[in-house]
């Protein structure tokens, strides 16, 4: 067993556990995007960064790939970590504003601006689909191609793959190629739908909170608080 401190709490974990798992065991939330249970940790999206070490030697590492170390001091929500996460979300918003997953994460982290050139990519190269295809479907029909700004995901030579079984697993795990949440203006980089006080569920009472698809939207709760205050 390895003993370490996460946000001041002492925790003992099996050797080989990742910081992400250890933090989740203690109930500290760490946002993830490229991480997925059942797939090998990849560390591509950098959203799960945490700060380790102390003083001038403190550094940011991806918690999904970093194994627990004896005596390690981990901070999952220090100022530096939050700043880094917000920046990453801004960059993700700059490339894929149509993704509900990214928009939800941005809302949850109170991202208020997007200062970069707005693009409308359809891939953030998180590699979930590649790992899904290889590790769970054992097909390896798609993979990374090229490098740098020409990096893309697809089949060799863009041809129909012979090993692909059309399982759709790649699309199922993709955090980007999904329907945009209907509430927003497509040209706006930050949807903020979830932070919006008049969410769909409020306008259309036939959707109760059990059916709300905007989770983790808290619009209805905010509305309730408002009502209570007005009373």
């Amino acid at each position: 067993m390895v003993t370490l401190h996460i946000n001041g709490l002492q925790v003992s974990q099996e050797k080989g556990t990742t910081l992400l798992e250890a933090a989740q065991f203690l109930g500290f939330p760490i946002p993830t995007l490229c991480h997925m249970e059942g797939l090998t940790p990849y560390g591509a999206c950098r959203l799960c960064v945490v700060e380790i070490g102390e003083g001038p030697r403190a550094r940011l590492v991806t918690s999904c790939t970093y194994p627990v170390e004896e005596g390690l001091k981990v901070r999952t929500a220090s100022r530096r970590v939050i700043k880094a996460r917000k920046m990453i979300l801004e960059l993700l918003l700059a490339s894929c504003p149509q993704s509900k997953t990214i928009q939800d994460l941005a809302s949850a982290h109170d991202v208020k601006q997007q200062r970069f050139k707005q693009e409308h990519e359809d891939c953030i190269l998180c590699g979930r689909c590649v790992r899904m295809c290889e590790e769970q479907m054992v097909a390896k029909a798609i993979g990374f191609r090229g490098r740098g700004q020409d990096r893309s995901i697809g089949t060799p030579f863009d041809e129909k793959s012979e090993v692909c079984r059309l399982c759709g697993g790649c699309m199922f795990v993709c955090p980007v190629c999904e329907l945009r949440c209907t509430y927003t203006d497509p040209d706006k980089a930050i949807c903020g739908g979830c932070g919006n006080h008049s969410a769909v569920c409020l306008e259309k009472p036939q959707f109760d909170d059990m059916m709300c698809y905007m989770d983790p939207c808290v619009a209805c709760e905010i509305e309730n608080i408002k009502e209570i205050k007005e009373d």
Binding site: K140, I142, R145, G146, R147, V163
Partner: peptide, 13 residues
């Protein structure tokens, strides 16, 4: 090896 890997290497370098 899978063609995907080979193609990945060939386009990377």
């Amino acid at each position: 090896r899978s063609l995907t890997d080979i193609y990945g290497v060939a386009t990377f370098y």
